[in-house]
Design a protein around this nucleic acid. Structure first.
Length: 884
RNA sequence: GCGGACGUGGCGGAAUCGGUAGACGCAGGGGACUUAAAAUCCCUUGGGCAUUGCCCGUGUGGGUUCGAGUCCCACCGUCCGCACCA
C-alpha cells in the first residue's frame, strides 16, 4: 500500500501534536477496519479480553489501565502474526440505571444508551485496537433474548429450579442478593444490612458443579494462585461423616455432620442451631428456650462481634445415645455458635479437639476427654487440633487420625447409622432479582398449569420501555399490560414472571457471544471452538469470586448440555492493580456569611479568595484554628512549588496526604478525558504501563505523566533523525537493539510492561548517544516498532514518514540470534565473597585462565594481603571468588 | 482465628537459576545554551569515613553457603481473602 495523502507525514514539525495526530489515526484505523477479527483466517488465533465495563457514563482511570494493558498485548500479538480477537461490549443492565431513572426522571434505557455512546467515544480517544463490529450491550433484546434461550436450555437440563427459601434481602436496593454478593452481612452494592426473607426464587444448580469447578482450578495454570485459592475456599469442600445420634428410647434422632469422625469417643455433648427444627418445636412449649433463641438471633455477624461473642448454650434436657456405645448418653444443647446453614445444623461437641467445643465445655462443666495425642501423652490446657494417635477410643486406639476416620466411617455404614459425606460451603446461585432493568426471566405463571416456560419461538421476552419510576419497587409489577399473557399450555389468562435475572448472568457468557453473533441462536459452536478459550483475560481482583466463578460455571453447564466444547473460558487470567492518587487537604477554610464554601467554589484573583458564584470576597480561616475537618481539594486546584503545595493561584498551603484509591469523596480523581486532552493518548497509555508492575497499585502523579509526555517528544525527535541512506556499522548498538527487542517481547508476553518500558528507555538512550550509521537507523526503526503497541499514534505518525503502510499492519522486528550473545563479558572478582574488582574478557574463557587473571589483579592481591589462597570458585562468564 | 501476598534509596521499582544490589523512571543538586524563561543537553545523587581507598547497607534476629535481596527458622510490620464452616 502506498502512503496516500491522508497518511503522508513529514518531520517538518518539531513537536509531535497528539491533538491532530491521535484523531487522524483513529479514523484511519476505523475506516480500514484494521482490527476486525477474521473468523476465516488461517493464522494462529489469539483472543485477548478485558472485563467489559458497566456503562456508568464515564470511563475512569482504572478502565484506562485495564484496557491499555489488553491493547498492548493485542497489538503485540498482531505484530507477531496472530489473528487477534479483541472485542468490547457493555455490561449494561443494573441498578444505577434505575437509580438515575428515579432521581432524574430519565428512562433507564435512554440513560444507559447515552452512557454507552459517551464512553465509546472516550475509549476511541485512547486508540484501542478493538473490533467494534462485535460490540454488544447486554441490555438489548438481541443479547438477552439469547440469554433467555440458554436459561430455558439449562431449565430443560434440570440445572434451573425454583424454590421458596430464606434469601438475602437488600432493603435499600429492594432486591434479593446471592451469597457471593453479601459481604460482612451487607449488600455488595448498597452497603445496607441484609435481612432474611422467605421468597420463591429461581436458582441455578452451581452446586452440581462444585467438584468440577474445584478440580478445574488445578488446570488453570495461567491464573494467579491467589484467585484459585479464593475460589477453592469459597467452594469450601470438606469430607467427613454424616450420622445420627438417636434420642434415648426413640427411633428419631439428630443428624450431625463432622469432619472429625475419629474423635467420636471424645464426644461430650450434641449441639444444635437455634433455628434447628428440634429447637423450634421445643420452643413452642418452653418459653425459656424461645427467649434463648431470640437472644441468639440478635447477635451480630461482623468479624469483631463474632470474635468477642461468648459461647452460649441452652440445655434442652434431651439425651441422645452415642452411636458407637449406645449405653452412653449425651446431653443436647441449643448453641449460639452452631449454624443452620452449614452441614445439618447440628454438631457433636468434642472439647478436647475443637476450640469452640472446649470453650463451651469449660463454661457448662462438660467432660473433656483427649482421644488423639501426638506422643501418647494427653495434651495441655487447650484443645489439641493437630494429628497423633488415638487413645481412650476402644477399638480405635493406636490408629492414626486418617485411619481412625476411615474406620469410623466404615463402621457407621456397616451398622447403618451414618455414611461418609462431602459438604460444600458453596450454595446454589439464586438469580431472581426484583428489579426492572435486567433480563426478564422467561417463565409464565398459570393457575392451572403452574410455572410454564415461555416457548422458544416467543423469545425474546422484551422488557417494556413504557414504565414509570414514580413509585419505588419493580415497575414490571405495575405495568398495565406487560405481565398479562395467555398460558402457552392451556391458553387461559396467566401472568409473566416479573423478576429479572441477576446481572452476573449477563456477564457469564458474553465472551462466547463475542466469538460469533448469529441472529437465530446465542452462538455458533464452530466459532466458539476456533476462538475459545480466551487466551488472556484481564480485569480487577474484585471479581475473583463473583464473576469469575459464575462464568466458569456457565461455561461448564453449557458444555455439559452439549452446546459448546469448552470447559474453562479463560486460559490465563491477570488481575491488575488499582490506580491510586495522593489526597490533598486545604489548611484553610473558606466561608461566606458564616456558611462554609467548598474549595472548588473558590477562585483567586491576585491571591484573594472569591466565591465563584457571585465574586464575593470570602472569609479565610486556618482549619487548625476553626477545629473543622480539613476539606479535600481536587488535584486541578493544587499547585506544586518545589517541595511545597498551594491552592492554585494563592499562597494558602495544601497538605499532601496518603496515596489511596481514587474516589469522589476524597476528591483525588483524575478524569481520563482531561489528561488525554492535556498530554495526548500515547503519554497516558505510556504512564499506565510505566514504573509499577501491572498487578500492583499504580500511583498517578502529575510529575510522572509530564515525564511520559516529554518522552513522547524525545522519541519524536529521535525518529526524525532516521536516515535510510546512512551507512556504517555499529556492532555494539546492533547487539543492544536485538537484545532489547528480544527481552521486551518476553516482557510483554509475561505482561511485565514496566520492564519492557525500562528496556525501551535504555535503547532510546543508547541510540541517541550513537553516531550516525546504518545501525543507528536500524535501531531507530526497531525502537519505533517496539513502542508501536504502547504508543500507536506516535508510531503511525513517524512510520508514515519513513516507510509504507500502517504500523498497525507491521510485523515485530526480527532478531538475529547471534547478536543475542555477547562476545565479551564482565566478570566479577570477589575475595571471600566481597567484590574487589571486575575484568572484561572474551565470552567463554576457560576457568583456569579466568583464575589466573583474577589472581593477577592488583586489587585482589591487596585484599589478599599475602594470605594463602585455599580455594577458588569460578562461575564461567560471571564470577571468580577467591577464598583465602 | 485460618489462609495468602508483600517488606529494597527521598518516591515508583529492577535484580528471571543463590553469583557485581539499586537497572529504568520520578524527584533533588550542579552546569551548558538563553537578555530571561520554557524546551533541550551534560554531570551528579543509598549512608558513613576518606588522600589512593575502606566500612556499612535489601523490615529484625539467627542459620545454611566460598557467596544470601533471593534458601531455611523465629519474630515484627503492612495489605488482601475467608471466618463460630463442625
Amino acid at each position: 500500500m502506498a502512503a496516500d495523502a491522508a497518511t503522508r507525514v513529514s518531520f517538518m514539525s518539531e513537536r509531535f501534536e497528539p491533538s491532530s495526530a491521535d484523531g487522524k489515526w483513529q479514523l484511519i484505523w476505523d475506516e480500514r477496519q484494521c482490527f476486525r477479527a477474521d473468523d476465516a483466517s488461517d493464522k494462529p488465533r489469539s483472543y485477548v479480553l478485558e472485563m467489559f465495563p458497566y456503562p456508568s457514563g464515564r470511563i475512569h482511570i482504572g478502565h484506562v489501565r485495564n484496557y491499555t494493558m489488553g491493547d498492548v498485548l493485542a497489538r503485540y500479538k498482531r505484530m507477531r502474526g496472530f489473528e487477534v480477537l479483541h472485542p468490547m461490549g457493555w455490561d449494561a443492565f443494573g441498578m444505577p440505571a434505575e437509580n438515575a431513572a428515579m432521581e432524574k426522571g430519565v428512562h433507564p434505557g435512554g440513560w444507559t444508551r447515552d452512557n454507552i455512546a459517551a464512553m465509546k467515544k472516550q475509549l476511541k480517544r485512547l486508540g484501542f485496537a478493538l473490533d467494534w463490529s462485535r460490540e454488544l450491550a447486554t441490555c438489548e433484546p438481541d443479547y438477552y433474548g439469547h440469554e433467555q434461550a440458554l436459561f430455558l436450555d439449562l431449565y430443560e437440563a434440570g440445572l434451573v429450579y425454583r424454590k421458596e427459601s430464606a434469601v438475602n434481602w437488600d432493603p435499600v436496593d429492594m432486591t434479593v442478593l446471592a451469597n457471593e454478593q453479601v459481604i460482612d452481612g451487607r449488600g455488595w452494592r448498597s452497603g445496607a444490612l441484609v435481612e432474611k426473607r422467605k421468597l420463591s426464587q429461581w436458582f441455578l444448580k452451581i452446586t452440581d458443579f462444585a467438584d468440577e469447578l474445584l478440580e478445574g482450578l488445578t488446570t488453570l495454570e495461567g491464573w494467579p494462585e491467589k484467585v484459585r485459592l479464593m475460589q477453592e475456599n469459597w467452594i469450601g469442600k470438606s469430607q467427613g461423616l454424616r450420622c445420627t445420634f438417636r434420642f434415648v428410647d426413640s427411633a428419631d434422632g439428630i443428624e450431625v455432620f463432622t469432619t472429625r469422625p475419629d474423635t467420636m469417643f471424645g464426644a461430650s455433648f450434641v449441639a444444635i442451631a437455634a433455628d434447628h427444627p428440634v429447637a423450634q418445636q421445643m420452643a413452642e412449649t418452653v418459653p425459656e428456650l424461645a427467649a434463648f433463641i431470640a437472644e441468639c438471633k440478635q447477635g451480630g455477624t461482623t468479624a469483631a462481634e463474632l470474635e468477642t461473642a461468648e459461647k452460649q448454650g441452652f440445655n434442652t434436657g434431651l439425651s441422645v445415645e452415642h452411636p458407637l456405645k449406645p449405653a452412653w448418653h449425651l446431653p443436647v444443647y441449643v448453641a449460639n455458635f452452631v449454624l443452620m446453614e452449614y452441614g445439618t445444623g447440628a454438631v457433636f461437641g468434642c472439647p478436647a479437639h475443637d476450640q469452640r467445643d472446649w470453650d463451651f465445655a469449660k463454661k457448662y462443666q462438660l467432660p473433656i476427654v483427649y482421644v488423639v495425642s501426638p506422643d501418647g501423652e494427653p495434651a495441655g490446657d487447650e484443645a489439641h487440633l493437630g494429628g497423633g494417635n488415638l487413645i481412650n477410643s476402644g477399638f480405635l486406639d493406636g490408629m492414626s487420625v486418617p485411619e481412625a476416620k476411615a474406620t469410623v466411617i466404615a463402621r457407621a455404614k456397616h451398622d447403618g447409622w451414618g455414611q461418609g459425606e462431602t459438604q460444600y460451603r458453596l450454595r446454589d446461585w439464586g438469580v431472581s432479582r426484583q428489579r426492572y432493568w435486567g433480563t426478564p426471566i422467561p417463565f409464565i405463571h398459570c393457575d392451572a398449569c403452574g410455572v410454564v416456560p415461555v416457548p422458544k419461538e416467543q423469545l425474546p421476552v422484551v422488557l417494556p420501555e413504557d414504565v414509570d419510576f414514580q413509585t419505588p419497587g419493580n415497575p414490571l409489577l405495575r405495568h398495565p399490560t406487560w405481565k398479562h399473557v395467555d398460558c402457552p399450555k392451556c391458553g387461559k389468562p396467566a401472568t409473566r414472571e416479573t423478576d429479572t435475572l441477576d446481572t452476573f448472568v449477563d456477564s457469564s457468557w458474553y465472551f462466547l457471544r463475542f466469538a460469533s453473533q448469529p441472529g437465530d441462536k446465542p452462538f455458533d459452536p464452530v466459532a466458539i471452538a476456533k476462538w475459545l478459550p480466551v487466551e488472556q483475560y484481564i480485569g480487577g481482583i474484585e471479581h475473583a469470586i463473583l464473576h469469575l466463578l459464575y462464568a466458569r460455571f456457565w461455561t461448564r453447564a453449557l458444555q455439559r448440555i452439549g452446546l459448546i466444547d469448552v470447559k474453562e473460558p479463560f486460559a490465563s487470567l491477570f488481575t491488575q492493580g488499582m490506580v491510586t492518587h495522593e489526597t490533598s487537604t486545604s489548611t484553610v477554610q473558606f466561608s461566606l456569611g458564616g456558611i462554609i464554601v467548598a474549595p472548588e467554589l473558590v477562585e483567586f484573583t491576585n491571591g484573594i479568595a472569591h466565591f465563584v458564584g457571585n465574586g464575593s470576597v470570602l472569609d479565610v480561616e486556618p482549619v487548625a484554628q476553626s477545629g473543622a475537618v480539613a476539606p479535600y481539594v481536587p488535584p486541578y486546584m493544587v499547585e506544586k512549588r518545589g517541595n511545597l503545595a498551594f491552592l492554585r493561584g494563592s499562597d494558602y498551603p495544601v497538605d499532601i496526604g496518603r496515596v489511596i484509591k481514587m474516589s469522589k469523596s476524597k476528591k483525588n480523581v483524575v478524569d481520563p478525558d482531561d489528561i488525554i486532552e492535556q498530554y495526548g493518548a500515547d503519554a497516558v497509555r505510556w504512564f499506565m504501563l510505566s514504573d509499577s508492575p501491572p498487578e500492583r497499585d499504580l500511583p498517578w502523579s502529575e510529575a510522572g505523566i509530564e515525564g511520559c509526555a516529554r518522552f513522547v517528544q524525545r522519541l519524536w525527535r529521535l525518529f526524525g533523525q532516521y536516515d535510510a541512506t546512512a551507512t556504517g556499522e555499529d556492532k555494539a548498538l546492533d547487539r543492544k537493539r536485538d537484545q532489547i527487542v528480544h527481552a521486551a517481547a518476553q516482557d510483554i508476553e509475561a505482561l511485565g510492561f514496566n520492564k519492557a518500558v525500562a528496556r525501551i528507555y535504555e535503547l532510546t538512550s543508547a541510540t541517541e548517544k550513537s553516531a550516525p550509521s546504518a545501525s543507528r537507523s536500524a535501531a531507530i526503526k526497531a525502537l519505533l516498532l517496539l513502542v508501536a503497541p504502547m504508543m500507536p499514534h506516535l508510531a503511525e505518525e513517524a512510520y508514515a514518514a519513513m516507510d509504507e503502510g500502517l504500523i498497525a499492519d507491521a510485523a515485530w522486528p526480527p532478531v538475529d540470534p547471534a547478536l543475542l550473545i555477547d562476545d565479551e563479558v564482565t566478570v566479577a572478582i570477589q575475595v571471600l565473597g566481597k567484590l574487589r574488582d571486575t575484568i572484561t574478557v572474551a565470552k567463554g574463557l576457560p576457568n583456569a585462565e579466568l583464575e589466573v587473571l583474577a589472581l593477577a589483579s592488583e586489587k585482589v592481591q591487596r585484599a589478599l594481603d599475602g594470605k594463602a589462597v585455599k580455594k577458588v570458585i569460578v562461575v564461567p562468564d560471571r564470577l571468580v571468588n577467591i577464598v583465602a
